[in-house]
Design a binder for these strands. Sequence first.
RNA 1: GGCGGAGUAGCUCAGUUGGUUAGAGCGGCGGAAUCAUAAUCCGUAGGUCGGGGGUUCAAGUCCCUCCUCCGCUACCA
Length: 538
Amino acid sequence: MNRTYITTPIYYVNAAPHLGHAHTTVMADILKRYRCMLGYDVFLSTGTDEHGQKNQEAAAKSGLSTDEYLTGQSDAFRRAFDLLGVDYDFFVRTTRPFHKTQVQFIESRLKETMAPDGEPLIIQKLYSGLYCSGCEQFKRDADLTDDGFCLEHPNLRAEQTEENNYFLRMEPYRADLVTYVEKNADFVQPEQYRQELLVMLSQPLEDLCISRPKARLSLGVELPFDPEFVTYVWIDALVNYLTNVNWPDPSYETRWAGVEHLIGKDILKTHGVFWPIILMAANVPLPRRISVHAHWLGAGGQKMSKSLGNVVDPFEVIETYGASALRWFLARNMRVTSDSQISVDLIRATYNTELANQLGNLLQRLLKFSAARFDGCLPASDLDPKDNEHLKAIRQLVCNAYSANNLPSEANGFEPVELASIPKMAEDLLHAIGLMNEYVTREAPWTLIKEPANASRVQSIVYANLDGLRMVLEGLWPIMPDIANRGLAMLGQAPLELTGSPRTTLAGGRHEFIAGRLVGGARIGVIETLFPRIETIA
RNA sequence: GGCGGAGUAGCUCAGUUGGUUAGAGCGGCGGAAUCAUAAUCCGUAGGUCGGGGGUUCAAGUCCCUCCUCCGCUACCA
């Protein structure tokens, strides 16, 4: 059994969950389910990052106590992922005690570590620069006006400030990391981002400031070796990937060996530079893979913004179209290498044409035909050779969706289903649906049935397509688990479900797509409309 | 400023290492069918592949340059 581990970033709770959070987390869930279908054991973690400056500010503004604020916000993220149908196995809050003690544990270890150059890994030094008290950040000259005023706080002059912070020396590890990235072609996927990482690593790395004086930031993990400081929030956050699987308890190893970090392209540096170096310094194996995706743009190809009015709120979409429709749109249109567009109009168009007209209607036209012509039952399972050929072709398409692989890493034994191949899978399954609609229309069983001699052929046509649709629904389960199971239920099939504690495997093990599993002649129950058409909403 | 990505039919996107008349879906138009959520199926129109220059027998595909958009470059995740 391949025990693997997928992580999402953990999300900063200073604002409400948005489409970007939904996207990465849904993709993680789809990947998990796909791999479970293939027989893997997959552990999925997500959660909330509850330390740092902006969270502290947001909590202060909220009027609630910090704990109340953080808990409320974290719950909002958890509810969002529940609403999206994400089957996460662990939801971390960085404020949980175990996480905090283990952050301190790794920091203590790093503090005692000598870098490859024989000097201490962590050093303390004076940092001086221009500090804007409005932003609570050090500023570069480039970020200030000629007069020394902050661009975001034109009434505040940035002040020369000195802080005695702790730094992690990254440069001594750069050469080893470059070698690692060069030797492991699939360490960062897709290739484009691996090249970007190599560019980042082509020049000397500055020391990474890993502390914040408590005087200006109290919401964080106290440094184990200096109570005057808390930990820089990114260090704290990254360590969740380890603490979620109980590191440093040796039990973490089986999961960690197959860990894959899903990230947006905006956080490649933290995951591709900071994190591997921390791991190397702490003597922990590097992650198996970092899978990177691009972002969503709003209508017009413009970055989403309130002023442009092109923000897509995942909750509104779920309310109108359902979580499955949102998951389908994301899976179908996501591109890993370039930003893609999303808007409510595009979602509605996809929902009506692909889901309601093509998928939902196909299921319903076949089931209603069966119910009306075959005495309320599914057709008999005896297949005419021609229909059998058609069914085999449909099965082949579904199987293709599960073997799609555009990576060179198959030989390395890693998962055959990749983030980048999700849209291709959705397209393969949609293609199968299209073939069935064509086939049914061309063979026109409603015409054939007028001739009593054609009775068995009519049953064969309908059976072949219902059985094909059954396999397509099974194939769609990772993308739309709820819809798939409702469709399967109408066909008298048992639902596909995750099982275990945690729920990391598919009940019944690896799923095989086998033609003929639809039970011929079984009584048809209630026929529901999976995707009611939704016309333009003013 | 530096670096990376993108710019292909009205819309959303595919286009292997350069090679026959540039593709799909949606939308439009015409038709067929009527089992079905007026859904489905067939046919059809529509593009000087961001602008310009270059290499080549041949460029959406390579090189140069310009324009536009997205992102990284910053101790905001």
